[in-house]
Amino acid sequence: MTEPILSTQDIVVRFGVLQAVSHASIDVVEGRVTGLIGPNGAGKTTCFNVITGLQEPTSGKVFFNGRDITNKNPYKRARMGIARTFQKLEVFGSLSARENILVAAEQRKTWDRSGFDPNAVCNEMLEKVGLSDVSEFMVGTLPTGTARLVELARALALNPRVLLLDEPSSGLNEEETEEMASLLRTFVDEGLAVLLVEHDMSFVMGTCEYIHVLDFGTIIATGTPAEIQANPVVQSAYLGTETVEEAS
């Protein structure tokens, strides 16, 4: 097995008495989509926040490219090559779609010395996610699904090594979800590492090569999609007969 580019070791996050994440270890490998699934409230987004530095873990470590980044600022992690999208939209609502992506591309200028042109990168990303037609609209006026694509393009404009996607398909219809999946494929084939939180199981099973299952903050299973689907622990703890949690 290849060395993971990003890994968390024994992450614990406690909010008061509530243990949101307990001893979660996640490995993300380059050139592949790693899934992180689990019922609502399992601690998936909290894991993302720990990896990107928005949430300080109570204990545990985060490694990126062999370096301990647990105490690094969020912006420093971004500069090292970690990008993300958010479960609830975090677009820049008073900027146009183009400016949203341009801001990220220009920001990349501060650490990436490859001499790229931010405007060109911005246009390329708009093209890739299919937003060229609406690029001059303020993001606040765009439908949720489109705004989600803006967020994705913004993250990709950083030319990251690891991309964390928090429920990218919510707000997208089936067709758009498929487009998103094939778009992801092209980036992963170029060597990008993706960590994916997702509720749409056909999406997860179709795109992920490796899956971590989180339940009540604990990793209860890891493996390939086939292994996960066959895993009795996952079946009982997560899939069960109850599907109500999923509907939201």
Binding site: L54, N73, Y75, R77, E90, F92, V103, A155
Partner: peptide
């Protein structure tokens, strides 16, 4: 939060 995660 989003600004920080794009490196601002």
């Amino acid at each position: 939060a989003a600004s920080a995660t794009i490196g601002v």
